[in-house]
Design a protein around this nucleic acid. Structure first.
Lengths: 231, 231, 231, 231
DNA sequence: GATGAATGAGGATTCATTCAT
DNA sequence: CATGAATGAATCCTCATTCAT
């Protein structure tokens, strides 16, 4: 038994915590940085604040990341992890109406990604892409391509089942993407800073988007007079 | 007639040039500011650089605009707010099918605003709103409120004419806004920095969005088998 | 008769006014500058504001005074004019009690100098003397020396008439000067900028100062119990 | 005992020096600031110069004081406000004649405050109050109010003991304040810049002021013929 | 002479980054 | 490894002064 074991327990504990923390450092810093970058953007986030939120000193931050810019890149890379495998499986397993599938997907997307902190990454990338081209490339490859691929397959399923019709499949995917990106951008910008508050209830927004997306704005010959319409 | 009138024309000319320059200054500065704000964002744009690009010195900028923020507001007024009058008139004067109106509006919106540099302002505001609440509030008031108002009236027109049906008018406007904002965000972020290039042809994008928006994804009972569908 | 005489009268008038003004320019500038220097001090007074208050353009100011510093010096020199002749005469002519003379002088000093704008010069000189040694020298020679001389003679008169007694004549004069300078300084500083307001009623202040100056704080053996004393 | 404790003393020493410097910084900065504020006034003192005189860089100054104004307030607290406790105690403890108390106080005031650099602060505030209302308000609260309060209590003590008599207590305090302020103003303006030198010996000035203040200028019936009077 | 547009040095303050401990 | 004191380049904005007209 080493002598250290004979030292007062507190010291032991603290030592252990310190060890644990030491290895967790980069992660804690990335966490803190994610929060702050999402909240304030790259330029307005102060290195010291990141360090403070991670519970370390300013100097320590630069021990792990050589510059604020590298920290930023690490934050984005760290958080762009493809959860696409899981999503693909779920998609493959889905049975039923394509309209329901789309309704389900949008809702699930919001609950699992949009509503959480992960959407902050998307906001971050889009907002700062211009000043960080390699991040943009990274994101494109890791998120956009697989994401658009999944969405395309969803539309194809609908078409194959004779439930959807689209004129231009490559661009139809944007009819699903645009509403999601818009919601994310608003959630992280105007919704949190306009004095009167920018009114945007996500659930209601998604419900409205999906229905319009499925059925369109145009009244159809056989349609019932649409009870809910507010003229 | 005083002798001065008989002096060489040059004097007159130079005077004229000076006058012209003086009057042109604000415009030149606004041009330069627009370029830089769009390129670098609000925070990262340095006042001095705006001045330099307009061919004047630092001090001159502040002769015309009391602060960077006021300069930005002037850019917004010059490039966006000022156009609503014209748009409203056009809307009021429009005759014909509401679907055509929507097609026309989207196209015209792109040609006049979206395609130009002005759309960069929208991207900027959404990206940096959180750090500049004053700017966000200003933009909300000057652009978002009148813009959404116009869109709402377009939908109401369609409903009134029995051509559109919407369940939730307040949120249906986002079905028009989201595609536009998405296009703007992409145009000024991923589209200009992803190496391979983010493939997004605006015209085709808008055409696709509008048709889906009008008719929805779902195949309708009486629909012909949709020749254009690419399975 | 020159043709100009046939021009509309207005022109004539304006021309005349302009002529008149042209010669008055330096004076108007000095007036404006006096006001502003007294109000804001040297550093905080902007040349442009002086020009604006004098009704001319910025450039014109520099036509008459080569720099802000020279303007400042001119302002002080211009306003340090000895009205001492008049005061001396009045002093020589005064008949009566020396205590009354002192009461009279203090009151008259306030009415004629202290209360007016002239006191601003004194405040100005004392406040800025350190940065303008030649102004200080000028003021010393033109104002302080003759002023102290007059005051000394007043005390001497009292002593000669057996009405005053002083131990140290050279310094006794400060017993008259200090209250005046203090009042001036306060009038132009704390009195006009402390939020709650610095309470200082000049008339009451002078009355109090004079009486204490004449009779002292110490109760005298034969004194009546001083009805007005507020314990 | 860990081995580190056995390391050469040098490390310890250097550490100590660094600690000492860190703790000394605010003091060094306050010293430098006091010097410069007194010498040049508030507006004309450049932050960088304060830092330089304290032997640190611009940034370091703002590490200890968030703004130039806060630096100034700290200077005031350090040099003036902090002393009232001590003064009050001394006043409470004073035994003896009120005239002696007044003589003692004036002398002590000069020795401890007036003669030192701290009095320059008072001069500065009065000179620049109008441009820095916050500073004026702060000074009023921290220095003027407690100062006048102490003086009022001194007069009240004299009255209570039947030694002083005043007609208007609220204004009688100015009979003590005015001489002190005058001396301060002169010391920091004309006295240090008039070429020939403005002749003002503080000790003699105070002695003269106090005696006149106590006994007044007027000869009293029972007075001896005032040996010292120089006619 | 008069104008006022233009200049650019200067000043307060911020913050990423370094480095001695 | 960790710290946090120190740095100084960078940035917004001001204003005395110049000079072409």
């Amino acid at each position: 038994m080493p002598f250290s074991k004979l030292l007062p327990v507190r010291s032991d504990d603290v030592q252990a915590k310190r060890e644990r923390r030491k290895e967790a450092r980069p992660g804690e810093l990335l966490e803190a940085a994610l929060d702050l970058f999402v909240e304030k953007g790259f330029a307005a986030t102060r290195s010291e604040e990141v360090a403070a939120r991670a519970g370390v000193s300013k100097g320590t931050l630069f021990l792990y990341f050589p510059s604020k810019e590298e920290l930023f890149k690490a934050v984005v890379r760290e958080n762009i992890s493809g959860r696409f495998k899981e999503w693909n499986d779920e998609f493959e397993a889905f049975e039923g109406d394509s309209a329901d599938m789309l309704r389900y997907c949008m809702k699930v997307w919001w609950d699992r990604l949009g509503a959480g902190r992960a959407s902050g990454i998307t906001k971050l990338v889009i907002s700062e892409a211009r000043n960080f081209p390699d991040i943009a490339a990274f994101y494109q490859e890791e998120v956009i391509v697989p994401g658009q691929d999944l969405i395309r397959r969803m539309l194809q399923r609908g078409i194959a089942r004779g439930e959807f019709q689209v004129k231009d499949l490559d661009y139809a995917i944007y009819s699903l993407i645009a509403p999601m990106i818009f919601l994310i951008m608003m959630k992280h910008s105007l919704c949190v800073c306009v004095p009167g508050g920018y009114p945007l209830d996500p659930e209601r927004y998604i419900a409205s988007q999906v229905e319009t997306l499925l059925h369109g704005l145009c009244k159809r010959p056989g349609d019932v007079p649409a009870a809910g319409t507010k003229p």
